[in-house]
């Protein structure tokens, strides 16, 4: 199977195999009107199991890097301009994420006040633990 190279756009590489569609949805890529390819189970020397997912976006768009950092800091972001590839520095997990995930604690104030933003803070960067700022429940 061949997917043609991009002249101007973004390639998200080294996505854990099977997680490509999840990231596609989290980044809201379905709303784009440009060409987007999600490649599942591509061959990889680097990735465990020898498989990875790749997302190719055929347009210069602004990506929310916090989402990628939260999703998996190991993902490589390549920005391509006029056929020249620039690899972005490694993305650290964001210190805070807003409205990306929801608090599932039924005792949390967010469970009854729907308009509150769901905000999680990184409380343990080593183990990538995020906790709800309101009830301190661990993100699942």
């Amino acid at each position: 199977m061949t997917i043609s190279p991009i002249e101007n756009g973004i390639v998200l590489d080294h996505i854990t195999a099977g997680k490509g569609m999840e990231l596609y949805k989290a980044l809201g890529l379905a709303e784009l009107d440009c060409l987007v390819a999600v490649i599942n189970n591509a061959y990889s020397i680097k990735m465990p199991g020898g498989r990875k997912d790749i997302i190719k976006i055929d347009a210069e768009i602004e990506l929310n890097l916090d989402i990628i950092g939260y999703f998996d800091p190991g993902i490589t972001v390549n920005v391509i301009k006029n056929g020249v590839n620039t690899k972005l520095p490694k993305i650290d997990p964001p210190k805070e994420i807003k409205n990306l995930i929801k608090c599932k604690n039924p005792r949390c104030i967010t469970s009854v006040e729907q308009e509150l933003p769901h905000i999680f803070k990184l409380t343990d960067s080593e183990n990538k633990v995020y906790r709800c700022i309101y009830c301190e429940s661990k993100a699942k």
């Binding site: 604690n105 949390c108 104030i109 967010t110 006040e113 009830c135």
Partner: peptide
Amino acid sequence: RHPKEGAPLV
């Protein structure tokens, strides 16, 4: 005092 966790923070 509030029964829901995080209400005082709000």
